[in-house]
């Protein structure tokens, strides 16, 4: 986690995949992430991001992406990148399984 210039990154949280466990917000060294009123994480101080990548590596649900901020591509909103539409597919993996493990 080398010291880098702040605010060079874009932090995106995909709300559809976030389960609100709070790990990202609790351990973010620059307090960029916070838990919102909907119980999901959101980037509130993106400009303070030091690009350590902790949240991206430790989000158990792959719901956070940290990318270099590129003003030309900033037209994209978080919703466009969200794979939320996939959750509309029929549930497949919740088949009854009740063995230990």
């Amino acid at each position: 986690m080398t010291r880098k210039k702040k605010g060079k990154t874009k932090v995106t949280v995909y709300p559809a995949w976030c389960k609100g466990c709070g790990i990202c917000a609790a351990f973010c060294p620059a307090k960029v992430l916070e838990m919102g009123p909907d119980g999901k994480a959101r980037a509130v101080r993106e400009e303070d991001c030091v690009n350590c990548g902790f949240c991206e590596l430790h989000c158990p649900d792959f719901a956070i992406s940290v990318e270099p901020a590129d003003p030309e591509k900033n037209g994209k909103s978080a919703e466009d990148e969200s794979p939320a539409e996939e959750s509309a597919l029929p549930a497949r993996e919740h088949a009854g399984e009740n063995q230990p493990g």
């Binding site: 029929p90 497949r92 993996e93 919740h94 088949a95 009854g96 399984e97």
Partner: peptide
């Protein structure tokens, strides 16, 4: 070994 669909993924439909 779970009941699966044509693609091999678990299903309970």
């Amino acid at each position: 070994g779970l009941i699966h669909d044509k693609l091999g993924f678990p299903t309970s439909r």
